[in-house]
Simulated scan of single mutants.
Amino acid sequence: MSVTEAAGLPVRPGESAWTEEELAEVRNQLESDIALLRKEIAEAESELAERLADSVDGAGDDPTDTGAKAYQREHDLALAYNTRDLLAQSERAVQRMDEGTYGECESCGQAVGKARLQAFPRATLCVQCKQREERR
C-alpha cells in the first residue's frame, strides 16, 4: 500500500493520518501472527490425532481416566477453535488492508481508530459499535 493509500485510511478526529511505515508495522505484526497461528494449529491437530489414537487404545481405563481424557480432548478442541478464529481475524485484517477498507467500522462505517488498531490490529468495529455488540 502506498503512502497516499495509507494516508487515505480512516482515522478518528484528532488522530494523525496513517503513514506507510505505521501500516507496514501493523501488517508485519499480523503476518507474523498468521504464521505462528498456522504453526500452532498444525501442532494442535497433530497432538489431537495422537490423543485420539490413545483414547481408542484406552480399553480397561476406569471411569476417572476416561473422564479425564474426554475433558482434555474437549479443552484441546476449544483451544484449537479459538486459534482458528484468531487466524481468520488476522487474515481478514490483512485482506481489508489490501482492499483499502482497513480501519473502517463494519457496522457504522466510521473510523475504528488508529490507536485502537495499533493496539488490536484485528478490530473491525469502532468502540461504540463494539460496546453495543457486547451489550446484546
Rank of each mutant, 00 (worst) to 15 (best):
H75D: 07
A24C: 04
I34L: 08
S16Q: 06
N28P: 01
T19Y: 05
D57E: 15
A17C: 07
L87W: 05
D65G: 13
T19A: 03
D61G: 12
S90E: 08
E22W: 06
T64Q: 11
I41Y: 04
A68R: 11
T64S: 11
A68M: 08
S55G: 09
D85C: 04
A68F: 02
L36F: 06
D57H: 12
S46H: 10
Q89Y: 12
E31H: 00
K69A: 13
H75M: 07
R27P: 01
D33K: 01
E74Q: 15
T19H: 02
L86R: 12
I41G: 11
D54E: 15
G58R: 12
L79H: 05
E43G: 03
A78T: 10
A78S: 08
T64C: 00
A80Q: 10
S90G: 14
A44V: 09
W18M: 01
I34M: 06
G14W: 07
V26L: 07
E40F: 13
A88C: 03
L36K: 04
A59P: 02
R38C: 12
L37G: 04
G14D: 02
D62Q: 07
G14M: 11
L86E: 13
L48E: 15
A80M: 10
G14Y: 05
V56F: 15
S55H: 13
E20N: 06
A35W: 03
R84T: 00
D33R: 02
A17M: 02
A42E: 15
G14N: 08
S16F: 02
V26C: 05
E74R: 14
S32I: 03
E20A: 11
E22T: 12
S16Y: 01
L36I: 08
D62M: 06
E47C: 10
P13S: 12
L30G: 01
T83S: 09
N28K: 07
L30Q: 02
S90Y: 03
D61L: 12
A70Y: 09
A88Q: 09
T83V: 07
A24L: 07
L23C: 05
T64H: 08
L79V: 09
E22R: 14
E21G: 02
L77G: 02
L36G: 08
V26A: 05
E21F: 03
Q29A: 10
Q29P: 00
R12M: 08
T83G: 03
L52K: 15
Q89C: 03
E25V: 08
R27D: 01
E31M: 06
L77Q: 11
G60Y: 06
A24E: 06
T19K: 06
E15Q: 07
S32T: 13
S90V: 02
A70I: 00
L77T: 06
P63Q: 14
E74H: 14
E45T: 10
A70Q: 13
E20P: 02
P13C: 06
S90T: 04
E74L: 13
D57P: 06
E40P: 02
R84W: 02
V26P: 00
L36N: 04
